[in-house]
């Protein structure tokens, strides 16, 4: 995750409070979605950015998760996310984001 983005997430978590925010990802592949999810939960695994060693434990979701999709206008969702939903490996992406969100094993 970009160092600026890490700094922004860190700042928002301090200013807003961790209970008042969620992180919504849009990464197109399981690997990068997993890395981003790990960064905002356990801390930056590359130890390069402001979240290195900072386990924020933020609730992190992906735009392709069913519970997120349900909250959105279907036409708008189709217009902006439909193509990604069709092309991306949704199951793998959701698996890894959920893994870090729930801090548990991959089922």
């Amino acid at each position: 995750m970009d160092l600026d983005d890490q700094a922004n997430v860190n700042r928002l978590a301090e200013e807003t409070g961790k209970d008042e925010m969620i992180v919504l990802l849009g990464q197109p592949d399981p690997n990068s979605a997993g890395l981003f999810a790990e960064t905002v939960t356990r801390g930056d695994p590359t130890w390069a950015g402001p979240l290195a060693g900072v386990p924020l434990g933020l609730p992190v979701y992906h735009i392709l998760e069913e519970e997120i999709k349900e909250t959105m206008d279907p036409d708008l969702y189709q217009e902006h996310v439909g193509l990604m939903e069709l092309s991306a490996d949704v199951d793998e992406i959701v698996k890894w984001v959920k893994f870090y969100r729930e801090g548990g094993g991959v089922g």
Partner: peptide, 23 residues
């Protein structure tokens, strides 16, 4: 790119193009 956080860039783009052809 895969060992970092960038994934397989061409593959992602080709999947998107294929999805476009489906739509």
């Amino acid at each position: 790119t895969e060992p970092g956080d960038s994934g397989d860039v061409p593959k992602t783009n080709y999947r998107t193009l294929a999805a476009m052809a489906v739509l």
